[in-house]
Design a protein around this nucleic acid. Structure first.
Lengths: 116, 116
DNA sequence: ATCTCTCCACTAGAGTTTCTATGGAAGACA
DNA sequence: TGTCTTCCATAGAAACTCTAGTGGAGAGAT
């Protein structure tokens, strides 16, 4: 497995929570599945480490953006499922708008044209 | 002055260095000017705090992406000018490509369509 | 001359997120 | 029984930005 580049780490900051919320729009899911959906959805460009994923899920639950319950996974293992709350949906829209505004602003600074 | 939102902070992570390097493509500049160029270039969406800017400049210099020299500013004040090095130009291209790849990947996950 | 404003550089400490590296429990299967 | 895979979880380190300051020096007004 290739070593993660530092720039990857930094550029992903703050986007994991948003992508988790987005994933849950498609229905309740547990951690392992959420990670797979994000990874495959990004054409395997993004990697979701467990050490990032679970703290993020707990963070989202603490803030009330998601709720959780125990159930059985597709493979019949015990798994904690997460559900997007009403507040979480609003948060997702806020974060998506913010993401668009920020990437647009950075795009303006970086310029659309070639740098030589 | 409005309080900075946490999401702003996170989404800017890792992009400041890239934007500084990009700014220096237009010619040598000192810290104060670099900040203004980025802020105005982003239509004042981005704010560059001094507490972020100067550590970033020192970081870039340590890594060899920029070099520095003392001079006089446009207002005849003492100012430390920064110049993009050859290695810095290569780094800028790497970071720009990475930025494009990451934003594209995140865009795929977030979906282009409305969320309702 | 002195005061005040603006420009310009710099630093310490706190806060947040992510990483690496583990540990552990439980079903599937040979 | 033993091993593989799935699934959850945490500790400690690393990195960057923020807030909140310090300090100096030129410019212009009084």
């Amino acid at each position: 497995m290739p070593k993660k580049d530092q720039s990857d780490i930094e550029m992903l900051r703050g986007t994991l929570d948003m992508m988790i919320l987005r994933t849950l729009v498609g229905g309740d899911a547990h951690g392992h599945t959420i990670a797979k959906i994000i990874e495959r959805g990004s054409e395997d460009v993004l990697e979701v480490e467990q050490g990032s994923l679970y703290p993020a899920l707990h963070r989202l639950e603490d803030r009330g953006w998601v709720s959780s319950y125990w159930g059985a996974s597709e493979n019949n293992r015990k798994a904690k499922f997460y559900r997007l709350t009403v507040a979480g949906k609003k948060q997702l829209l806020r974060e998506r708008d913010r993401w668009r505004q920020m990437t647009r602003a950075i795009g303006l600074v970086m310029g659309e044209e070639s740098l030589g």
